[in-house]
Write a protein that binds this DNA or RNA. Structure first.
Lengths: 191, 191
DNA sequence: GGCTGTAACCTAGAGGCCCTAGGTTTCCAG
DNA sequence: CTGGAAACCTAGGGCCTCTAGGTTACAGCC
């Protein structure tokens, strides 16, 4: 019988698609094996275990996401860049819920350091904030604030956290506006 | 043999403790049954299924959390109230990571409506914002912004999302400060 | 075109989980 | 004291992860 031709790369891509369709928590080696017409045991020659697959998926999705954000932010500055970043972030979370969930798992610090994804993400994010003229440690504080709000909003949205009748897109725009004012009136020590 | 004396209430409390120790995703009926010295099948006379247990845990934890927040906020207004709310929120997420994770699952809308937890949470949150003088829909937008940032920060923190050397408590305080300025300079339509 | 090694695949099986069906025992209320 | 509800049990199916060890396809080399 001909081989299925499984590889780590194809496995990760299949996992990404499955995650978006069935939810990240339902990504199983068994289900992926079925999709490839192969037994689950066979996959262990491509991937050490489920944990490793999840980690690879997280890095894959993280790279995909930051690429889109980078494209959106390119050539913009200040509020324009902030809005573009925010829009691309939420757009990815919406269109790829399973992959987005994957990006949020805890990853072995050693693996993170190896991957260029985190460095790139930091570059883009800090770069976007350049126009606001913040210095460390305010810069890191601001990055944390933005990431928190963006992630929190998408996470709450995804689990049905917003049930007031108010339009969620409008609230999002307002949140981005509010973050912009927070950045322009950043609380300094000398207040 | 004497009975173990399992009840829904004891089950939920045990689940809460297990969640904090082993993580929310590791709360299983099997593990709880072991803890009670009972077979897993026995638990199905107390709880319909794992889903229901999780939902009950979520409502339990949500009630516990909003109680602490309410106590912290009581008698305060404006920035004071905001800081107290934020502090109590993060304190709960830190001291009860498993329970906190439980509060963030998607819950059947019908069950939510039955429970007073959500109403109480809304009351406290909107009440805390009273001093900022916002009207709808800005009020809802502001609530969503706060919840997003609070949750996002705690979630990122919990999964090791902040690895810069900067102290996470200091960043949190800055974030709360920044939210305060965002609320006091809330972006109106007429800008 | 045969040979050979490696990687891709397989079967078998242990162990954990959720959940159902149906039987037994405890214990309280009448 | 007794009937019945509720608490508990065994047995078993289905899905999952992961290991051990055996087989087969295929690429590269003589």
């Amino acid at each position: 019988m001909a081989r299925a031709g499984v590889s780590v790369e194809r496995l990760v891509v299949a996992a990404a698609e499955l995650a978006d369709e069935a939810g990240f928590e339902n990504v199983s080696l068994s289900a992926l094996a079925r999709g490839f017409g192969v037994t689950d045991a066979s996959l262990y020659s491509h991937v050490r275990n489920l944990r490793e697959l999840r980690t690879r998926l997280a890095l894959f999705a993280g790279g995909e996401m930051i690429d889109r954000i980078a494209t959106a932010v390119a050539g913009r500055a200040g509020k324009d860049a902030l809005a573009a970043f925010a829009g691309a972030y939420r757009e990815y979370a919406h269109s790829h819920p399973g992959r987005y969930a994957a990006t949020r798992i805890r990853i072995d610090q050693a693996l993170v350091a190896d991957s260029p994804v985190m460095r790139r993400t930091a570059e883009i994010t800090y770069g976007m904030l350049r126009a606001y003229g913040l210095d460390e440690p305010d810069l890191t504080d601001a990055v944390r604030l933005l990431r928190s709000t963006f992630h929190g909003y998408c996470a709450l949205e995804a689990t049905g956290g917003f049930n007031a009748p108010r339009d969620v897109d409008a609230s999002w725009d307002k949140a981005v506006d509010a973050l912009h004012t927070a950045l322009t009136h950043w609380p300094r020590e000398d207040r």
